[in-house]
Structure formats: C-alpha cells, structure tokens
C-alpha cells in the first residue's frame, strides 16, 4: 500500500496546481509534461529497446504539422478526429523509418535515424507544405464538441493542463503495462543479449519495430499537444537538436525506468528556464551542463538520480518494476 502513497500524492499535487499557481506556471508545467510524454515515449525505444533514436523530434513535429494542416482556418479542430490522425501519421512515419533503420545496429542505427529525421525536416522546410521554413499557425485550439455544444475547449489554460495531465497519466500507465508485459521482457532480453534472445526464438526485428512504432506514436501525442499549446508549428520542431535534447532528458532521468524521463524533462526544462532568465549565453551553459552530466555518468553509474541522492529512490513503484530483466527470466 505504501507504494501507492507517493504517486497518489504527486497526482493530487498535480491536480491542485491550476487552483494554486498563476496561469504562467500552469502553462509552463503543461509544456514540461508534454516534453515528459515525449521523453517517456522515446525511452521505450532507447532505454527499454536499446535503440538510440535521433529522429523522434520528426515524429513529434510531424504530428504537430498534421494538427496545423487539419485545422479548419480560424475554427477549432475536433480533438477526437485530429489527435488519432496525428498519432497515426507519426506511427506510420515510425513504421517506415523503423523498418529501414532496424536493418542496422548500434552506431549505424543512430546515423540512419538522424538522416531520415532530417529528411522529414527538409520535407517541411524546403517544400511549400504548411508555409515552408516560415511554419504555420494553429489559429484555434482543438475542442471536443457534439452537435455544436462544446464539451471541452482547450483554449482555457487550466482545461488544457488537465487534458495533458490525463494523457500523461495514461502514457505512464500504458508504458508501465508494456514494460511489465511479456512483450516488454522480450524487448529487454533482446537489448541485453541479442544473440541469446534470438536463439530463444524471439522475433527480434518485429519486437523492436513494434516498440519503435509505439514510441513514435507517443512522440506524436506529445507533438500534437505542443502544436496546440503554442498555436504554431515550424520545421525546427522536427530538427534533430530537439531529439538530442530529449535524449539528455532520458539520460538524466534514467534509462531503465518509465517515469524517470519525466523527471529528466522537468529538470532540464526548469534548468533551461532558469538559464534563459539569467544569461544571454544560456546555450553555452546548457552545453557545459550536458557535458558535465555525461562525464559524471561515465564514472560507471548508469543513473544520475541515485548518484545524487545516494540510493535508488524507491517511491514510484513503476520505476522499480522497470529495472532490467533478471537473468534467466525469459527462459
């Protein structure tokens, strides 16, 4: 029972936030949650699947563009129609890119995903689709309406926040179930010892492709809400610098956990906010911090979090459950 106390308290705090904090912070936390969804989705591929992908920003941005393209002029788009469409587009892109990239391993995989991600970037940057390099506006936030009656309008920051929070919790739930399922164990087995997993008869290519597609669809979910929040999409949303930044979030939070990357996202976005406010050269500071984090991790510790606090935090149960599959677990 105690295992449920901390997550429940955190969720209660998250629900209470819009009633206690100014709108600016509600929007800021919404943004951090969206990046958290993206980071957790990416970690299904990176941490659980062992696939270091540098094209998740492309799935993220693609979904955002789908919302921009499907939004009817100055009217609000229907969330129930456009969200599935955006996630499906991201999933299809992940299926095609994944099917090709998974023919390779390791460092090749990184380079191939980076290149295909940039292909999508150039597709939106160089061609006239949705404004080219200038980007496009999402003039009205999506809504859920039945027969002209608005059930949910994302234009209110608090409503937007609650919807994002709901999807955040849903993402955690889905990912936790996936990682704990036989599918998740097989995926982890393929990551830890590909040859052994293959000789045990696991269809490794298919396992990894499925994980990659789900991961891409979750990135699409995040991209949809990012586009809705800012009301604007630009090719930079698809660029690989964002992919790499999200990888940093994953590394900060911990590769083997489900919710770790969410913490990583909150830490890094909070850090960026502080740096932007305090120095003009915030990218220099961020670069140095990224280098410092990586160098600190090279000490042989895989996770930064336990390093800072001395021990593995055992509050959220999902994190402990997501630890690497025990030897012989798959036999």
């Amino acid at each position: 029972m105690r295992n449920w106390l901390v997550p429940a308290a955190l969720v209660a705090c998250a629900i209470a936030l819009p009633f206690a904090a100014p709108t600016y912070y509600v929007q800021f936390v919404s943004k951090a949650f969206i990046m958290g969804i993206l980071a957790m989705g990416l970690n299904l591929a990176v941490g659980h699947g062992g696939m270091v992908s540098l094209c998740h920003a492309a799935f993220f941005g693609l979904a955002g563009y789908i919302l921009a393209l499907l939004s009817p002029g100055y009217d609000a788009a229907s969330l129930l129609l456009t969200l599935p469409a955006a996630m499906a587009a991201a999933a299809i892109a992940a299926l095609v890119i994944g099917a090709l990239a998974l023919r390779t391993r390791g460092v090749y995989f990184i380079m191939v995903t980076l290149a295909f991600g940039e292909m999508l970037f150039f597709l939106f940057h160089d061609t006239g689709i949705a404004g080219g390099s200038d980007g496009a506006y999402v003039n009205a936030k999506p809504e859920i309406a039945i027969a002209g009656y608005r059930l949910l309008d994302l234009a209110s920051p608090a409503a937007f926040y609650f919807v994002v929070l709901a999807f955040l919790i849903a993402t955690i739930a889905v990912l936790t179930m996936l990682v704990r399922s036989p599918f998740g164990h097989a995926l982890a087995a393929a990551r830890d010892n590909e040859r052994r997993a293959r000789s045990l008869g696991f269809p490794i290519y298919r396992l990894r492709l499925i994980a990659f597609v789900i991961s891409g669809a979750i990135a699409g979910l995040a991209g949809y809400f990012a586009a809705a929040q800012f009301g604007f999409v630009a090719p930079q949303m698809l660029g690989w610098h964002l992919s790499a930044t999200v990888l940093v979030m994953v590394l900060i939070g911990g590769l083997r956990s489900v919710t770790g990357p969410l913490i990583g996202a909150l830490v890094l976005i909070g850090l960026e906010e502080v740096l932007k406010a305090s120095t003009d050269y915030w990218k220099l500071a961020e670069g140095l911090i990224v280098i410092a984090i990586v160098l600190a991790l090279l000490g042989g510790v895989r996770q930064l979090w336990p390093m800072i606090f001395g021990a593995r935090p055992d509050a959220p149960p999902s994190r402990r459950a997501a630890s690497p599959v025990a030897e012989g677990h798959n036999g």
Partner: peptide, 9 residues
Amino acid sequence: LVQVLLSFG
C-alpha cells in the same frame, strides 16, 4: 548514447 550526448553538448 553517451558519445552522442557528449558530442551534442
């Protein structure tokens, strides 16, 4: 992964 991120930094 750490090579990618260090060079990104």
